[in-house]
């Protein structure tokens, strides 16, 4: 009897499979997952966990959250990040204090491993969505992430 039930089960499972793909086939026009990239550049939205490049968000007062602690520089396995720092005077307390001068990021060396972003205690750096990074000269891939004239947001170190 198991012979006949084998045949029955075989046909049944095959038909189940075919109904699944059949539904896909009918819905392909609406739900195609293919992105027609250069054509839809204006509307293209990358997914949340996409790792394009490391960026440092600045708020409307041109302030970022980087304290210059250099943890990201230490965490980076291939020396992509260079923090050039300086000592300044804290206006409130009048003490000497470390602050960043330049956050240098060599995109050409970055492996997008994400260790720097995990290491940052103040979430000053994040993943950006841009992936169109081709340039004619690789020095153009060396970027300074903190904007000129920016300073650390007050209270971020507390």
């Amino acid at each position: 009897m198991s012979y006949l039930s084998n045949i029955y089960n075989g046909i049944k499972t095959l038909l189940t499979g075919m109904s699944v793909t059949g539904k896909y086939f009918l819905n392909a026009r609406k739900g195609a997952i293919t992105q027609q990239y250069p054509d839809n550049r204006a509307t293209l939205k990358m997914f949340d966990r996409f790792r394009g490049e490391v960026i440092m968000p600045h708020d409307e007062n041109n302030e970022h959250a980087c304290t210059g602690c250099q943890k990201c520089e230490l965490a980076c396995p291939n020396g992509t990040i260079e923090i050039i720092w300086d000592r300044g005077i804290d206006e409130v307390t009048g003490k000497k204090k470390k602050k960043i001068d330049k956050f240098v990021y060599h995109l050409s060396m970055c492996t997008m491993c994400g260790l720097c972003i995990d290491a940052c205690p103040t979430d000053a750096i994040k993943w950006g969505q841009n992936f169109e990074n081709s340039v004619y000269d690789r020095t153009a891939l060396t970027r300074v992430l903190n904007k000129p004239g920016s300073k650390v947001r007050a209270g971020i170190e507390d």
Binding site: T21, G31, T34
Partner: peptide, 10 residues
């Protein structure tokens, strides 16, 4: 084309 549609591609 048919294969693409079965796999939700174009």
């Amino acid at each position: 084309r048919v294969a693409a549609w079965f796999q939700l591609r174009l």
